[in-house]
Amino acid sequence: MSRIVIHAGFHKTSTSTPQAWLGAARGPLRPHAKIVPARGMQALLHACRACSTLPEPLSPAKVAARAEAVAWGIAGLKGRALILSAEALSGHPPGRPGIDSCAAAPALPAELTAALARRFPRAALPPLRHRNAAPDDLLHINRPISDRTARRDAKTARLRQAAGTR
């Protein structure tokens, strides 16, 4: 029986390390797993980001339709695991303009899970576990670049002043 793993998480929540590892290990893992990276599901990721930015009645339907397209675009697993990994499967994180909560995040991977369950009815789909950093932490991480640059420049100036250099 094949197993399906969906790895979704916000930017700056330690999602890049497993994604990099999966990318690097893709060749050796090929006999055991089908890995679908972000570049293999761009339309779905775009819909997920849009759903968190523009919560409109049609957004979940777009996510569902694009999740179906991803699911049906995957050839038979033949006993291999299926691993889908991308940050944007959770939408945009809080801290971006107009986004102050993680409200859309749990529903987005759930749409993909439902589509995969229809496509691979005999595959083992573990229950979704959704863990996030606190929204306040994400707001801090995702401040506009100019704010972070200004803080970094101010810190650099203080350190140089303390060291007596320019």
Rank of each mutant, 00 (worst) to 15 (best):
A8T: 13
H32R: 09
A133C: 05
V5P: 01
L108I: 00
M41S: 10
L22M: 09
C51R: 06
K78N: 08
L108W: 00
R96I: 03
A50P: 03
A88N: 06
T13F: 15
L128S: 13
L116D: 01
I145R: 15
T149I: 14
L82E: 00
P126M: 02
A103L: 06
C102K: 07
R160K: 15
A69P: 11
L159W: 07
H46M: 10
A104Y: 01
G40L: 06
T15R: 14
P31T: 05
D137L: 03
I4N: 02
L77H: 03
P18Y: 14
A104N: 00
R151N: 08
K62W: 15
R122A: 09
A61M: 13
M41Y: 04
T15C: 14
S90D: 09
T15I: 14
S59I: 04
A114I: 02
H32K: 07
M1K: 12
L44P: 04
L139S: 01
L22N: 08
A64C: 09
G79S: 12
C102Q: 13
T113S: 07
R39F: 10
R131I: 11
E68W: 10
P31K: 07
G91E: 05
V5A: 06
A61C: 12
P93W: 06
G95K: 00
I6C: 10
T13C: 15
G79F: 05
K155F: 13
A67K: 03
R160P: 09
Q19V: 11
P121Y: 03
A64P: 09
T149K: 07
A81M: 05
L139Q: 02
L139W: 00
G76V: 05
S2R: 08
I74N: 04
V70R: 06
R26F: 05
V70F: 04
M1W: 10
I6M: 11
H92S: 13
S85Y: 11
